[in-house]
Amino acid sequence: MSVIYKSEAGGRELLRRYREALDGWPVPAEHVRVPTREGETFVLVSGPEDAPPVVLLHGSGANARMWEDDVAAWSREFRVHAVDLVGEPGLSAPSRPVLGTDAPALWLDDVLDGLGLADAAFVGASLGGWIALDYAVRRPDRVRRLGLLCPGGLGRQKTGWLVKAVLLRMVGRGGVRRSAASVTGLADGPVLDGLALTFEHFKPRMERLPVFPDGALRGLETPVLVIVGARDAMLDSRGTARRVRECVPDSTVVLLPEAGHAILGQTEPLAAFLAGR
C-alpha cells in the first residue's frame, strides 16, 4: 500500500471512505475482481446483462466513484463496467504498467478477457483517456466507440501548474485544496473536498504522458468523441481539439469554454454517442 500512498494510515482512510461510497452506489452492481498480469483489478458491473458493454476508465487520483453521477443513466441501456485502474487509489493492485509500452494494453486484454468481453465501447478521462486511446490504437478490433474526456497524449502537457501545486502543498491542507481547485477547475463542494483529501495521502504518477503520433491517430477507424475544457490547466485543450479534428477520421470534438481539466455533466451527450444517436 505504501507504494502509492504517503502512509499506510492515509491509504487505509481513503479506502475506507471509498468502500463506504460503494455501499451507497446509486444502482445495483456486482463487485468483480479480475486477475491480471498487473495484479487483481476491481470492476463495478451494472446494467442489463444483454445490453451493449461499456468500459469506464477514470483519471489519475480517482477510482470508479468518478462515474457516480453517470452510472444510473448509463446502466439503463448499457452493461457498464467501471474499472479501478491499477496503481490508483481504488481497490485494484498498486502496480503501474509503463506508459508508452504494450503493458497497459496487455493489462486491459486481461481485464476484458476476465469480464468475458470480446470488445466494448470505452469512456476514459485524463489518464484513463490516454489508456483508452492507446488501447484503440493497439487493439482496434476490441474498441467499438471511444469517448474521451480531457484525454492526455494529444495536446501539449503543461508544466506551470506543477510548480504552483508544489508550492501550495508546502503550506499544508489548505494549500492542497487550493492546488486541487487550481488544477481541476472545480468549484467548492464535495467533489473538490474528496479530491483534496485524496491528494493529501496519495502519490500520483508523475511521468509525462507519451504523445500519440499523427499516423496512429489517422489509423483509427472507430468513432471518437472528445470533450475538453478550454480552461484546462494541465493540457492544451485547443491543441487537443485541433489534432483530433485534423487526424482522427471519424471524430467529434466539443470544446467547453468555461470548463477546466475536470469535465462534469456530460452524462447525456456521452450516452447518445455510445448509443450511436
Rank of each mutant, 00 (worst) to 15 (best):
E13G: 08
A259W: 13
R16A: 14
V32D: 00
P35M: 14
A259E: 13
L270W: 02
G276V: 09
V80Y: 10
V71E: 02
E38T: 13
P26I: 07
R238L: 15
E88T: 00
L15H: 08
A216L: 01
I227A: 11
F199K: 08
D214H: 04
V3P: 13
T252Q: 14
A275S: 15
M1L: 13
L146C: 00
H31F: 05
P26D: 09
L274P: 14
A73K: 01
A21K: 13
E200I: 02
E200F: 05
G147S: 11
L168P: 00
R145M: 11
E38H: 01
G194C: 01
G260V: 14
V34K: 05
A29G: 04
P52L: 04
G47P: 01
W74K: 02
G219P: 06
V45N: 00
A230M: 15
F273K: 04
P257D: 12
F78S: 01
L85G: 04
G215A: 11
A136W: 12
R173E: 13
L15F: 04
P89L: 06
L106S: 14
V191S: 07
W130E: 05
E77L: 00
F199G: 07
R17Q: 09
L274I: 09
A9R: 05
K203Q: 05
P151H: 11
L274Y: 08
V253R: 07
R96I: 07
P190N: 05
F78R: 10
M206Q: 06
L220Q: 07
G160R: 15
V166M: 15
F122L: 10
R96A: 05
E88Y: 11
L91V: 02
R205W: 04
G174W: 15
D250K: 09
L57T: 00
W67V: 01
P97F: 03
E77P: 06
V27T: 12
L14C: 07
V45H: 01
L149H: 00
A165M: 15
L85V: 00
D23N: 12
G194F: 03
V45F: 03
L197E: 03
A136F: 12
P190D: 11
R243F: 08
R96Y: 11
L99D: 12
G100Q: 05
N63Y: 01
L44D: 01
R218S: 12
P210I: 08
R243N: 14
A51P: 05
L112C: 13
V143S: 08
T240N: 10
E30V: 06
M66E: 13
D69H: 05
V176I: 15
V253T: 14
E200C: 07
L133M: 00
L146E: 02
A105D: 08
P53G: 09
D134V: 06
A64N: 01
S95G: 15
